[in-house]
Design a protein around this nucleic acid. Structure first.
Lengths: 127, 127
DNA sequence: CAGTATCCGGTTAGATACTG
DNA sequence: CAGTATCTAACCGGATACTG
């Protein structure tokens, strides 16, 4: 590389770029919250829904399925009546905690500046 | 806190949660790519569009406006004919490089495992 | 209990045409 | 050159009703 271009900038948009794959998973509305709640340990579907708060069953199911598909959580169904399903972070899922903590740290340190810019920008636009 | 629940897990979905604000900005289709390209230095609109590749003018404009609104890039318009507009990362924008690098590193190290799980999962579903 | 099926409104992004 | 305006298709998330 002759320039300082970050290594993760390829030629154009690439849906298979590793960074994109991760952002597509983690950038949606509930995934990060679900991972955060599961950091406490295994949890059943309804408990998870209550802890996350505000998520519909359909969307939580989709979120968990996507997470399971990617090997970030395990889904364990017990063939009892009524059914019981436990979700748990895998080692891979737990390894995501570090990067997410970095994101959280940056956000908490700089979000005030972001909001301040945002307010000033919106002010200027309405004049 | 009595549990190990990550500090960034509040009660339910909160659009003003700092982590959410950041993910909402950075999780879209082009933002990370644009920041990556701008890491090289200031760049004009068309050059940026060419370097990013595949983005329409309308969407790039929206992406840059959002970035400028949040104080992550500056927009400098020269009142010449034809017009010339430079975009440049701010210090705040550059400070995001670290977190994005962490994301990239995790992605590059673990994406193969994610894809492997994904393939196995999809296999199982089609049987 | 842990989902699935269906419908719906809002947002996102792409294509195209036009302008100061 | 650097946008804006308009239209459209696709997707995401929410609400509700239903089921093994």
């Amino acid at each position: 590389m002759t320039s300082a271009t970050a290594a993760w900038v390829g030629d154009g948009y690439d849906p298979e770029c590793p960074t994109r794959v991760l952002l597509d998973r983690v950038g949606d509305k509930w995934t990060v919250l679900v991972i955060g709640v599961l950091a406490d340990g295994p949890m059943r579907f309804t408990a998870l829904r209550d802890r996350v708060g505000g998520v519909s069953g359909k969307v939580l199911t989709a979120t968990l399925r996507a997470l399971a598909r990617d090997g970030l959580v395990t889904r364990t169904a017990y063939p009892t009546i009524p059914p019981r399903v436990d979700y748990e972070l895998t080692d891979l899922g737990r390894s995501l905690q570090g990067p997410l903590d970095v994101i959280r740290d940056w956000s908490e340190q700089h979000i005030a500046a972001v909001i301040a810019h945002r307010d000033k920008f919106d002010d200027g636009a309405s004049e």
